[in-house]
Computed example of a mutant assay.
Amino acid sequence: MPMYTLAVCAEMVFRDLPIHDRARRIHDLGFQVEIWDWSRHDVAALSRTGAAFSSMTGYLRGSLTDPDGAAELLRTAEESIKVAEQLGCPRLNLHGTGLDEKGLPVVPGTGPVTGPMWIAAQRTLSRVAELGERAGVTFTLENLNTAVDHPGVPFAKAEDTLALVAAVDRPGLRMNLDLYHAQIGEGNLVELVRRAQGRGLIGEIQVADVPGRCEPGTGEINYPAVARTLAELDYDGTVGLEAWASTDSDLALERFRSAFTPA
């Protein structure tokens, strides 16, 4: 049996229900629960569901590279830690810059990431990691794709995210390795998982199929092969479904469970 835990993003399934009812439904089906921007939800109602919360967005605004953006990211990260304590949520997710409700960067990049931007991002992430360590939570930096969903986001590729997490080299920061985004941006997913896990830098793995960003089994990614690799590597973290249901949410969760339950 796999050692890892399965979680489901409540933002993307059972969308006819209020978010707290989605969380309860996911919990009743045997999964942990993930959410995005906590400020849009009734946190007290979520905490009453009895669900185990696996991950949530760890900031509200800000960016990694400019001083004002970094200060805002750190300030809202501290707010997010307080909410994570209410929900018992161990991981708080970050991106290269603030995203709007459509997933687009609030301040899109206009050119390549420069050396000074890398240094500034490393410094900001070191401060974020320190916040996490003091609070007993882990911040995760997620790779994104710029070709389809998040054009203009800096540090978007999995290799960039991995490099930043390695450069910070603190237990309060790990990588949220999103295989949907990595397939669009880079591919070669099994070797990417092996490399990141071998360096001990994975805080979570998120999945959806390509194209369409629906549950495993609806696209081109061989997720059973990924699951076998995770089992071989003794991965004992979380695999989170961050995907739209292609037809029915209950079916989507069963397909996810089946893909990540090696025979």
Rank of each mutant, 00 (worst) to 15 (best):
N145E: 06
G152F: 02
F139S: 09
V128K: 01
E133S: 14
R127W: 00
A156S: 07
T161W: 04
A129T: 07
P151Q: 03
E133R: 11
D149T: 06
L125R: 12
E130Q: 13
T140K: 00
P154T: 08
F139N: 11
K157R: 09
V137H: 14
E142V: 00
D149G: 08
A147H: 13
G152C: 06
V148H: 11
D160Y: 03
T146C: 15
A163Q: 13
L144A: 02
L144K: 06
T124N: 08
A135K: 11
F139P: 10
E159V: 08
V137A: 15
A158L: 09
K157S: 11
A147E: 13
D149P: 11
T124C: 13
T146G: 12
F155E: 07
A163V: 03
T161K: 00
L162C: 06
V153N: 00
A163H: 12
E133Q: 14
D160E: 14
E133N: 12
R127A: 08
R134L: 13
D160F: 04
L162Q: 10
T146P: 14
A147T: 14
G132W: 04
F155P: 05
V153I: 00
A129G: 05
P151R: 09
E133D: 13
T146D: 13
T138I: 14
L141I: 08
P151L: 02
V128I: 14
H150T: 01
